[in-house]
Design a protein around this nucleic acid. Structure first.
Lengths: 228, 228
DNA sequence: CGCCTCAGTTAGAAGCTATAACGACTGTAG
DNA sequence: CTACAGTCGTTATAGCTTCTAACTGAGGCG
């Protein structure tokens, strides 16, 4: 006997070896978010119910308030995770080539959106009236925009300058210090709005009843953006 | 004395002279919808509360169920009214010229959207998961699409044919019997998606923090669509 | 004039978010 | 090994929501 005791837990609560309470806490938080995502995927964010999540986890409703201050708090964290996931998808799409191929980025966006439509709508759909994005999501959003800008450099540098480019050159605020050419900025902006236009209407079901495949329209718009 | 009695109400319940009960009913219904619109304009459709509306009208909650079968029923009617309003705005925009000027239609859409952002989002925003549009809204949607198609005829007939046009020529389903050229169809589609792309992101507040005026971007996209 | 329909009421069920108070467990310190 | 303390999960409760059922009152219509 006197079997070797399981490694005595380090008393130091280093970030990679947290004390058991904290470890359990983060695990439960993750499980809550997992159930929340499943619920959002089926019924949308507006139908997210803390009570239902607790019941699925074998707990009572108020227990969840130990882990999230409120329902909005949970949703905010899900929004942040969604942004993070999109940024990761963009990183993965632009990892292969040097400087993020534009078409790859476009198709990555659509694949990411179709993978979980409600996750896309959670970010780009109808906003909650009183909701204000926290600082970290604006950071991730800027990260995403930067990748899009990078991808637009090779396809928009030698584009003809439009009146809007001239206007944009004098009215830029975000894109701090990047100072991409106005044509590139313009191209990134319209890429964003056009891709979102097709995706948003597709996910909302506004193309049902029309026989064409939205993927074809999306690809055509992407091609138009790529070739100028 | 024997003053002339006020015109005796016609006993016949003709559509333009309904019996008092029906008249009162439609009036109360209209008042309910008016309060609903005011509530939606301030807090969005998700925050619409029948109880609050009833309280504002000096009634108790269940009384409203005499006029609308359910909350979804009320929202459905508001959606239909919103579509009707947009169709009217399009009609007004295309009334002056013969055949609906494209730019006028585009600016009419933006003006209509900014007039009441939540009304626009009620139609084109994140859909309720289980919601299915009734038949009359698809009719109005088709009416709107027809006006857009008409406006696209003069600006897209002599456009160069793209691969997507060829695809679209073989995969059209709505647009029953209209049989517009594929280029016109294509132009109408991308007009829709591009205008919606800018409007949707603008109304959702995704351009806040960027210094440019979304109206300029919208105008630029519209110009691009008009000139090809 | 009397009936009868319909508007609006109260009462109540089932659901939700969220707070407060309490018991119990557990990790840690002495 | 024991005692403390912090946290987890519970029940109870308030207040909100949609929506149904049953009752009352008043108005229109024959």
């Amino acid at each position: 006997m006197n079997a070797p005791r399981p490694q005595k837990p380090e008393a130091s609560d280093s970030p990679e070896n947290p004390p058991p309470r904290a470890r359990y806490r983060t695990q439960v938080r993750a499980e809550i978010k997992e159930h929340a995502w499943r619920q959002i995927a089926t019924a949308g964010a507006s139908a997210l119910s803390l009570n239902a999540i607790a019941k699925q986890m074998g707990m009572t409703g108020p227990a969840l308030y130990r882990y999230f201050a409120s329902r909005d708090d949970l949703i905010t964290e899900l929004v942040t995770d969604a942004y993070r996931s999109l940024a990761d998808a963009f990183h993965a799409a632009s990892a292969g080539t040097q400087g993020a191929d534009f078409a790859d980025l476009g198709h990555a966006l659509r694949a990411w959106a179709l993978e979980d439509p409600h996750r896309y709508l959670l970010i780009y759909g109808t906003p909650v009236p009183g909701y204000h994005a926290p600082a970290d999501v604006t950071l991730i959003a800027a990260e995403i925009m930067t990748m899009l800008l990078d991808a637009c450099v090779p396809v928009a540098t030698d584009a003809e300058s439009t009146p809007f480019d001239a206007y944009l050159a004098g009215n830029r605020a975000w894109d701090g210090g990047y100072s991409a050419p106005a044509q590139v900025l313009h191209r990134a902006l319209v890429s964003w709005t056009r891709m979102h236009g097709v995706l948003s209407l597709e996910l909302a079901g506004h193309f049902t009843g029309m026989a064409f495949d939205p993927a074809e329209l999306y690809a055509a718009e992407l091609d138009r953006l790529r070739t100028g």
